[in-house]
């Protein structure tokens, strides 16, 4: 029975490792909570999340500017990426001839694989001057170029491949028959898209968009390089911002020297973690609802 016991042991071994890997998210949550807990001893959650005073040396740990920084940049990025992404996906799925689609899709996959530091480089070289010298003067504003707008633009191009490829896949799952039925009744292609395609896919599109938000919240390097990193709540897109990810990345070095600073940084990481996980779970729940309906 050697074969049989070999099989049992290897399945057992594989299952144990599988169980351990399923704990990764939980372990991360536990470590973050354990490390940020000390901060709760001197500050309430309200002060932490809504307080705007960031003076670690004086014990002021208000994360509001950073939370708002993250929100501003992410909202802007998604505001750009969602329409661009959806329209591009519709084009690829419904309107483009096969050979055009086949040549564009690899480019989009390529974009998805580019490391974020390179987007940062591009942002510094191309977007920062563009915002500083062209866009801002159009609105009569003067800025260094390292601001929310730049961060939003750079972030949007990083999220686009995700939105496009997920939406494109979704559109392609709609059966040809339904589309043909609509066209046969005299609808234009766009009307078919509007009334048939969207209706069938909007839960999935919503899930894809939520996933895009989650990705955008967590992006660190590219944003850090172009967004200015000033700890104040932004009042316009031309103001600099300091997203949570940049806060964590920038301050590791000094973390251990200032009391409670490490707790504060881990608290920032915990806040980020909670936001990202909530969005991920929302997206998953939507997908489960879709599958149930099918």
């Amino acid at each position: 029975m050697e074969r049989g016991s070999l099989d049992r042991w290897s399945i057992r071994f594989m299952s144990i490792i599988a169980f351990l890997t399923s704990l990764i998210a939980i372990i991360i949550a536990i470590v973050l909570m354990w490390k940020s807990f000390p901060l709760l001893q001197i500050s309430t959650i309200q002060e932490i999340v809504l307080g705007s005073i960031w003076q670690p040396l004086a014990g002021g740990f208000g994360f509001f500017p950073f939370i708002m920084g993250t929100i501003w940049v992410t909202l802007l990025a998604m505001g750009i990426a969602i329409p661009l992404g959806l329209f591009s996906a519709i084009f690829l799925a419904e309107y483009s001839p096969g050979h055009i689609r086949e040549s564009i899709k690899p480019l989009i996959d390529l974009l998805a694989g580019i490391p974020s530091v390179l987007f940062g480089l591009w942002g510094i070289l191309v977007i920062v001057p563009w915002v500083r010298d062209t866009i801002a003067p159009m609105w009569g504003v003067s800025t260094t170029g390292y601001c929310v707008l730049t961060g939003g633009i750079v972030l949007s191009i990083m999220v686009l491949p995700l939105i496009i490829s997920l939406s494109d896949e979704l559109f392609r799952t709609v059966p040809l028959d339904i589309k043909k039925a609509s066209l046969a009744l005299g609808a234009t292609k766009w009307q078919t898209v509007k009334y048939v395609l969207f209706r069938k896919t909007y839960p999935g599109l919503l899930a894809a968009i939520i996933l895009g938000f989650s990705r955008a919240f967590g992006e660190t390097m590219a944003v850090l390089m172009v967004v200015g990193n000033v700890a104040k709540v932004p009042t316009s897109v031309f103001d600099p911002a300091y997203p949570l990810t940049a806060l964590i990345a920038n301050n590791y070095g000094e973390m251990l020297s200032i009391p409670l600073f490490d707790s504060a940084i881990m608290m920032a990481a915990l806040i980020l973690f909670i936001i990202v996980v909530i969005f991920n779970i929302l997206s998953k729940l939507l997908l489960i609802r879709i599958q149930k309906a099918v």
């Binding site: 169980f19 704990l23 991360i28 992006e219 969005f279």
Partner: peptide, 25 residues
């Protein structure tokens, strides 16, 4: 399905958090 879901959540966690947690350890 439970394992897949927990892995999907882990996939979505930003890498800066992974770095922060390992550094803490």
């Amino acid at each position: 399905e439970y394992i897949r879901t927990s892995l999907d959540i882990a996939c979505g966690i930003p890498t800066i958090i992974y770095g922060a947690v390992v550094f803490t350890i």
